[in-house]
């Protein structure tokens, strides 16, 4: 009874102040759409960096003349490290075979060589959670100290760049989300505050007639929630329009975008996010009601 009456009052107020409310809804929708796009970028960059450890490896080039026992010792020492997922020994013969496969059209390079110039090596793959520049550098320095290891190679520059991009995008994204969320709360706060001041006389009368704080607050909180929810809904519509209208077409013509994923399950919650931010803004706007 009490809630249905409050809901009715909220709907009447939304209609009566339709222009200010429409403006708020569109502002919230724009904010949530930008949040969506930020999340979309973070999500895909995370996805891309998660796939990197599968492709990334540290190569250990071994000294010549090591016995099977020495190689076994090196492999065992490597496997002791928590960060190591798997090791693969590549003998000299296999290394030259691989090289021949790679330089098919320029096999003159290897012509006339009396002995195999390539060293035996060990390819080392890392576990997903240890895939960061500091661990890789630490591991590379440990490996260098193992007896029988001649050289260690990994794409240090590449690894650092990818990590910086990932951290940068995540930080920027989180910052953007925090600022825009605060912005959305502020929009709802301002809208509800304006409506509250416009109804100051009416609220005074309600207080004198015996209305509780809950009765006075409820229509404003519902209104804030509805504005946020509607903003979230339109933000979601905007995100879907972005996907079907632009992104989907880009993937058809530009293969670069083929691996990019649009996380629908994340975005259907936008109206709920809007509802939550709207209610938060309204509650802050109403503050403490004194009798």
């Amino acid at each position: 009874m009490f809630l249905s009456y409050s809901f009715r009052l909220a709907m009447q107020s939304i209609w009566r102040e339709k222009w200010i409310n429409l403006l708020s809804v569109l502002t919230i929708a724009a904010g949530l759409l930008i949040i969506t796009l930020a999340l979309f970028s973070i999500y895909n960059i995370n996805l891309a960096t998660k796939k990197l450890p599968e492709k990334f490896s540290i190569m250990l080039y071994l000294k010549d003349g090591l016995s099977d026992q020495d190689i076994g010792n090196i492999t065992a020492a490597l496997m002791k490290d928590n960060a190591v997922e798997k090791v693969k020994y590549i003998p000299k013969d296999e290394a030259i075979k691989e090289l021949r496969g790679v330089i098919k059209d320029a096999d003159y390079i290897l012509e006339g060589l009396n002995e195999n110039p390539l060293p035996a090596s060990i390819e080392l793959k890392l576990k997903q959670k240890y895939f960061d520049p500091s661990t890789v550098k630490r591991l590379a320095s440990d490996i260098k100290r193992i007896k029988g290891v001649d050289e260690v190679e990994f794409g240090e520059q590449f690894l650092t760049s990818i990590h910086s991009i990932k951290t940068g995008v995540q930080t920027l994204g989180i910052l953007l989300i925090a600022i825009l969320s605060a912005g959305i709360i502020f929009v709802c706060y301002s809208t509800v505050k304006i409506l509250f001041y416009r109804k100051k006389e009416e609220i005074e009368t309600l207080k004198l007639l015996g209305a509780t704080r809950g009765f006075i607050r409820a229509p404003f909180v519902i209104e804030g929630g509805l504005l946020g929810g509607a903003g979230g809904f339109f933000g979601m519509v905007g995100a879907l329009a972005f996907y079907y209208g632009l992104f989907n077409r880009l993937t058809l013509t530009m293969p670069l975008f083929k691996g990019v994923v649009f996380p629908f399950e994340m975005f259907i919650f936008l109206p709920l996010v809007g509802l939550f931010l709207g209610i938060t803004g309204a509650i802050i706007a109403l503050g403490r009601i004194r009798f």
């Binding site: 009874m1 009490f2 309600l206 007639l209 015996g210 209305a211 509780t212 009765f215």
Partner: peptide, 11 residues
Amino acid sequence: ALTLRIRGVDE
């Protein structure tokens, strides 16, 4: 009716 609605009286 406001007086009664504040008290949550049935419609």
